[in-house]
Design a protein around this nucleic acid. Structure first.
Lengths: 161, 161
DNA sequence: GTTAGATAGTTAGGTGAGCTAATAGTTAGC
DNA sequence: GCTAACTATTAGCTCACCTAACTATCTAAC
């Protein structure tokens, strides 16, 4: 409708404005739903671990694009809360294997679904065409800005094809 | 075309995946361009102050959707770096007036433009139609997830020259 | 006018995400 | 066997967030 000609600069401008706003919304949603408060980053770690269980710390760090020390500290907190389990890898003894505890799985699913629902509630107001418009835009952004190896997360929402 | 039927849940899923990825990209871009390193949040504060100069601390906090103590600490850092100036409001003596210093304006514009350019570079690969698709999606997200008062930032991308 | 309530900003104290640099242990290459 | 590369951790830092509590100021009500 208002789709006049857009320059990359203007589009970049929009990205820089909208993305932080949505980030704040996501953070607030997660906070309001988690009884043991999860951060957005923690949720992403748990979400990743659910589908790539037995990952090494480095693998998770690479996927989420943070340094290993950062991930090490994050895992510390998650282990301390009983959501993640660290175990040694027998074949590679410098590596650790990360996996979700049952509680970690439950917490992750609960918070993820609740957050997803909060976001979906906002989207309810839209028409199917508008939903598709958002979805198409996000898909493009995904190809442009996601780290290549992160695409597994991006693909993961499409098992209903 | 590839726009099959999308459920709100799937769309929410995409949002939760893509938005953090783009956030990371923005953060990395800003970091790489600022000589005095600015954070994404700091850039947003400076960006806002440029077009709403003489704002009070609360006004900025409300716009960026953070608490006053958080904004107070952020302003502390920006003042310490000589980018922002705190002055008393003569008519309301409990209020402070925030404004960019010349250096603050210069730093903001440099970092903002460089970041915008980095983002725009990625967007160059797209067709006009794809650009419009992203733009349209972002516009919708903006109406859904931005705080009402923040819309001024969203409108603001067309005033250079 | 004084007193009660709201409002603006700060301070104190905490959690968590992020970084770099340096370290210990492990594996692999030569 | 020695070195080089890799995995994870520790230490030390900055910054973005939060809540609770405090000061100062303004407003309104009595």
């Amino acid at each position: 409708m208002a789709a006049t000609l857009i320059t990359p600069d203007q589009c970049a401008d929009s990205i820089m404005t909208v993305v932080p706003a949505v980030t704040r919304f996501l953070r607030a949603s997660i906070r309001s739903h988690g009884k043991p408060h999860l951060s957005l980053s923690q949720l992403r770690v748990l979400y990743f671990l659910q589908r790539r269980s037995q990952s090494s710390l480095s693998a998770v760090a690479d996927y989420l694009d943070v340094t290993r020390p950062t991930m090490s500290a994050m895992v510390d907190r998650l282990v301390q809360r009983g959501l993640v389990h660290r175990s040694p890898d027998p074949s590679e003894r410098r590596r650790i294997i990360l996996s979700l505890t049952p509680e970690g799985t439950a917490t992750m699913e609960r918070v993820y679904r609740a957050t997803q629902q909060t976001v979906a509630d906002r989207l309810e107001a839209l028409s199917a065409a508008q939903l598709n418009q958002i979805s198409a835009g996000l898909a493009l952004l995904s190809t442009l800005f996601e780290e290549p190896h992160v695409s597994a997360l991006g693909q993961a929402h499409g098992d209903t094809e």
